[in-house]
Amino acid sequence: MVRKKTRKIMVGNVPVGGDSPITVQSMTNTITKDIDATINQIKELEMAGCHIIRCAITDIEDAKAVREIKKNINIPFIADIQYDYKLAIAAVENGADCLRINPGNIGSVKKVKKIINICKERQIPIRIGVNSGSIKKEYLEKYNGVNADSMVESALEHIRLMEDMGYEELKISLKASSVPLTIETYKKISQIVDYPLHLGVTEAGPVWRGTVKSAVGMGTLLSMGIGDTIRVSLTGNPIEEVKVGREILRSLGLLEEGIEIISCPTCGRTKIQLIKLVEEAERRLKHIKKPLKVAIMGCPVNGPGEAKEANIGIAGGQGEGLIFKKGEVYKKVAEESLLDELIKEIESL
């Protein structure tokens, strides 16, 4: 993969674009003005590996809550604004690190200019978000409906508006619930602009279905070198969004952080409780941030040989198993001690 070189912006202390690592974002589903609930959820998302968090700002109480929330979290805060430019200004005044707006629903150019002015003053970037459901009627008519051309044209109109105001601290998203449309649209915009791109398949659906759609859509784009930050949109616990996002990046070699478990699908040769073993290993290893590849294999056939690229692993047998490192057998262990011994060896690394 050759990653497309984009401009670099700073969202708080996290770089996005350029040669910066691709980041995982999520969005809280709490009422933002419920400060304790919002802080607690953000802390849980931080623990899961979220790099940047976004919250909905629906009224002035939400905007004022940003100040207290920021004092209690460790990752950058994006304020998501719809329609009311005054809320965007209030969110920035209270410490938001970035805004997500659709300039088309903010209203007059004069209102957008007021947002730009305070963002310039405080060096706050803006994400221009265009979804397949928010395209102007004139572009729908010009390009015969919702497609990559009408979506890109909508985004370019907003980009030109910002640029005409002397503002270029932008990142761009063009999300659709259709995977093919999402891929086509991001490919098209990436050939036209060099702003960092925020990837996502919008309204992807329930956790299982949405995971598949997001992995196919974003994975395809990332494998082409397109994308600088991602958000998996699932109807479920936001922690699942972070877990899926991190795994998409890890599967492409774009995230060197945390444990990657390699495990076989089991078959008639498997003599140990492999599924239970893998689930327990995931639970007990989730706190480790060091990038390690761990293999948990059902039998010696799929053991040290097929998993020799793993840093460490185990292969089950009849009442016992092997622990191996880089494909070389290290020691033999009784089945009931296999996971404990594996974790002890991992922690020693």
Rank of each mutant, 00 (worst) to 15 (best):
K4Q: 07
R7D: 14
K8Y: 12
G12E: 00
P15D: 13
G17S: 00
G18I: 01
P21Y: 10
T23K: 07
V24M: 06
M27K: 01
M27C: 09
M27S: 06
M27H: 06
T28L: 05
N29R: 10
K33P: 08
K33N: 10
D36P: 02
T38M: 00
N40W: 01
A48G: 06
G49C: 12
G49A: 13
R54S: 07
I57K: 03
I60V: 15
E61G: 08
A63N: 08
R67V: 09
N74L: 09
I75L: 03
I78C: 04
I81L: 05
Q82Y: 12
D84H: 05
Y85A: 15
L87E: 05
A88R: 01
A90D: 06
E93N: 09
A96R: 01
C98M: 10
L99V: 08
L99T: 05
G104V: 14
S108I: 11
V112F: 09
K113Y: 15
K114Q: 14
N117Q: 15
Q123K: 15
I126K: 01
I126W: 04
R127Q: 10
R127K: 12
V130L: 02
V130M: 05
S132D: 03
G133S: 08
I135K: 05
K137L: 10
L140V: 05
E141Y: 08
G145R: 09
V146I: 15
V146M: 07
S154Q: 02
I159K: 00
L161A: 10
E163L: 06
D164F: 02
M165P: 01
G166S: 12
G166N: 11
Y167E: 11
E168P: 11
K171V: 13
S178Q: 13
L181P: 00
I183A: 03
T185F: 01
T185C: 07
Y186V: 01
K188D: 06
V193K: 04
V193M: 07
D194V: 14
Y195R: 08
H198Y: 10
W208H: 13
W208M: 14
T211L: 02
V212F: 11
M224I: 08
I226M: 08
S233A: 14
G236S: 11
E241A: 11
E241L: 12
V242H: 03
K243Y: 12
K243I: 15
R246E: 03
I248Q: 08
L252V: 11
L254P: 02
L254W: 04
I261P: 02
P265E: 03
T266Y: 09
K271I: 09
I272H: 04
I272T: 04
E280R: 04
R284N: 15
L285K: 01
I288V: 14
K289F: 07
K293C: 00
I296W: 02
G298T: 00
N302E: 09
N302A: 06
G303Y: 03
P304Y: 04
A307M: 05
A310C: 12
A315I: 12
G316C: 03
G321Y: 04
K325M: 13
E328K: 10
V329L: 07
A334R: 13
E341Y: 09
L342Y: 06
S348H: 12
